[in-house]
């Protein structure tokens, strides 16, 4: 079975800093990583391949340096990596992104075989939109299974799949027909290490590189900034509160003295809170 995993290379967001004067992102030295949510999708795909045979192709759209993330995915054990990279994709919003990825998936189907399952992570840590997976599913007519906690059953011969999907207040057990798009929930598995041979193979592997034209995209107006219905009007740092923070003086106060000061300050700020707490304490 051929499985495709869509991934994204993202900045390690914990380390992003904003220029204090210009309010622009300082990219200096910000390391990039595979979007952590995508690793759950990749591991799930690798497990299915190990069980049922076949191949795992990883696909990403991004700048040339995104190849690093793909190579890392090969180190984990993926069989093939495809990088969709073209200046025409710059400035894509989620709609334009799903357009480009859907085209690349069609091309992958032609070149390497049609995948009954396409995986994505549940969302990225930089965009946090969770829209690209559903967008791809809709464009390619794949049955959409989001927030999947477990693949309970998969019968490639019969073309059916049963999954447990995280919903509000419980798990939905859904059965549908292949082909499907699955977005994996976080924490449902743990990415493997990859053997030394996998690492060696990955280091020397050729990553397939496609431009928009290579992926068969002719309508460039549907890509990148042009193909994005949303536009970013402004990017800004938030304002502080109008009313300044009241600092509790700490000079020459022991931790215990300071604690008493803090509690007094809290109750001065919000007197009813003291009654609430006393009621709680009385109820104990």
């Amino acid at each position: 079975m051929h499985i495709v995993v869509c991934m994204k290379q993202v900045p390690d967001s914990a380390q992003i800093r904003v220029h204090p004067v210009t309010n622009t992102i300082m990219r200096q030295g910000v390391p990039t990583i595979i979007n952590p949510y995508d690793l759950f999708a990749l591991e799930e795909a690798l497990r299915l391949r190990d069980r049922l045979g076949g191949e795992v192709t990883v696909l990403t759209m991004g700048p040339p340096m995104a190849e690093e993330s793909l190579r890392k995915a090969l180190t984990f054990g993926a069989d093939r990596a495809v990088l969709l990279t073209d200046r025409a994709f710059a400035g894509s919003d989620t709609l334009a992104t799903s357009f480009a990825l859907a085209a690349a998936l069609n091309k992958i189907s032609q070149e390497f075989g049609e995948p009954p399952i396409v995986f994505t992570g549940k969302q990225t840590i930089d965009g946090d939109t969770a829209q690209v997976g559903p967008g791809i599913a809709k464009r390619l007519g794949l049955n959409q299974l989001t927030y999947v906690a477990r693949i309970a059953d998969l019968d490639p011969a019969a073309g059916t799949i049963t999954v447990e999907r995280r919903a509000e207040g419980g798990l939905q057990v859904l059965q549908t027909r292949l082909p499907v798009l699955i977005t994996m929930l976080e924490g449902v598995n743990e990415i493997r290490r990859g053997s030394l041979d996998d690492a060696y193979r990955a280091a020397r592997a050729q990553v397939v590189r496609w431009s928009a034209a290579d992926a068969g995209i002719t309508e460039l107006a549907r890509c990148g900034l042009k193909g994005s219905p949303t536009i970013v009007k402004k990017v800004f740092a938030p304002q502080g509160r109008a009313e300044k923070v009241r600092q509790v003086p700490t000079a020459d106060r022991s931790a215990d003295e300071l604690a008493i000061d803090v509690i007094a300050a809290i109750f001065r700020t919000q007197p009813p809170l003291e009654d609430d707490l006393l009621r709680f304490a009385a109820g104990q």
Binding site: V10, I16, N23, I125, V232, F236
Partner: peptide, 15 residues
């Protein structure tokens, strides 16, 4: 929030 929550951005869908 954008860029992993380092900044805010305002987004429009004009057309």
């Amino acid at each position: 929030p954008t860029f992993g929550g380092s900044l805010l951005c305002t987004i429009l869908t004009l057309n």
